[in-house]
Amino acid sequence: MSMHRFAIIIGFLGGILGFALSGAAFAAESPNLGEPISEADLAPWDINIMPDGTGLPVGSGTATEGAPIFVQKCAICHGAQGEGGEARALNAGPPAATLDGGKSIANFWPYATTVFDFIRRAMPPTAPNTLPAEEVYALTAYVLYLNEIIGENDVIDKDTLPEVRLPNRDNFIIRFPERI
């Protein structure tokens, strides 16, 4: 090996070494103060339900089972038949929503999984995140039934809910696709 070639190799290695060092120095500049946490330990906060059903818990319910729970926990704001009151109507509403109002699950919402997600995280507003999964499934089924999407004895669970197709799903235009 000539000295010339040796120098090139050393220089090349030095370059790699220098890059690695600077990379390490750069990483060390970031504080890295977050504590690692396991999937099991973060599970109590991991409540997002995705449109494909990811995140849905074990359990099931029907509209028939949901009706008495609705009367007990929801009707005070949403009306005895979901016709609305202090809070929104939860029935099918008009055939189409307009700027005069009338957005409903039947005529506007794109995904049925959103119903489960929102009931669980936000309802009832005085005690959200307290309903057991069985009750959330039953209320989801009841609200979908009020919207004439499913029958009163159709079972809603982690497999059937993502299969419920809401009528307006394909009626949306992404406003700024380049920003996503």
Binding site: A96, N171, F172, I173, I174, R175, F176, R179, I180
Partner: peptide, 9 residues
Amino acid sequence: GTAYQFYFL
């Protein structure tokens, strides 16, 4: 009768 989704801006 359509609607904008992900308006954001």
